[in-house]
Amino acid sequence: MNNPSSATPVLHLAGVEKSYNRGLPNQVDVLSGVDLSVAAGEVVALVAPSGAGKSTLLHIAGLLDTPDAGTVEIAGQALSGKSDGKRTAMRRQDVGFIYQFHHLLAEFTAQENIVLPQLANGVSQSAADARARELLERVGLAARAGHRPAAMSGGEQQRVAFCRALANGPRLLLADEPTGNLDPGTSDQVFAALMDLVAATGMAAVIATHNLDLAARMDRVVRLEAGQLHSGL
């Protein structure tokens, strides 16, 4: 567990609203005035029933979607109303995503999967290779650097996906059921690796999970119900 700083939060959502079919008779209100602040070094568990809107919330927080109302700030920068280019640059540099399924590129090795997003961000090949090796070693996969995903277990693949998400040194990590596709024993091991990575970097993290045991191991738990966030399970 980490002690969050009292400085400007890495992620700040204020009054965020999101509806689908807005203005139509079949409008569905997903988020109804969501407020959330996450500090550097803080790991927040997001729990919610299926279909409650947690993926929508993560997409808005990670600048993959825009709210109908409210503000989104990352590291003190308000992103509402910014150009697509500005949002893309912020997302590439400051936000890391992890999903339930690893989505690794099958034709590339573990190391290459971690190198590619760095090259897209302008990092040199040598620096990207060094960063990939460092991250793989940190999660105990240095010996698997040259293996393609098909030659790795599910838990190994997901740990590579963690490394890829952290490759560019994001300030904010957003994870949507990152261990949901794994058996309980592997899930616990992979979650421990993720927490170690977050602790080593001091980033802010929001991790959506149905696993209440894992949620209880994070710094704070927020619950999404009826479009709003509440503290605790």
Rank of each mutant, 00 (worst) to 15 (best):
V10K: 08
H103W: 07
S55K: 03
L174N: 06
T201L: 13
D183I: 13
R87H: 02
I114R: 06
I74R: 04
N121E: 11
A132G: 07
I98Y: 09
L11P: 04
V160C: 00
R22F: 01
R217C: 02
K82T: 15
V95F: 01
D68N: 10
G169E: 12
N3T: 15
A151Q: 14
T88S: 15
Q125H: 15
P25T: 07
D29N: 11
A226S: 13
E134W: 10
A151L: 13
A120R: 15
A215Q: 02
N26I: 04
V115S: 03
P149K: 02
D188N: 10
D188T: 12
A7N: 14
Q228R: 07
V115H: 12
D29G: 02
P149V: 00
R92I: 06
D35Q: 02
I74L: 10
S6K: 14
L105H: 09
L24I: 03
R223P: 02
M218R: 03
L63I: 06
S55P: 09
G202V: 01
V28Y: 03
Q125S: 15
L24Q: 12
L141V: 14
P25F: 01
L64S: 04
F101D: 03
P149D: 07
V123W: 13
P9I: 06
I74E: 07
V30W: 01
A69H: 06
P170H: 05
A40P: 10
S19D: 06
L31A: 00
D196E: 15
A204F: 08
I60H: 04
V38D: 01
A127H: 13
A127I: 06
E177V: 07
D68H: 06
L79M: 13
V160K: 05
S19K: 06
H59Q: 11
M90C: 14
G140Y: 04
Q228D: 03
D129F: 13
V222I: 05
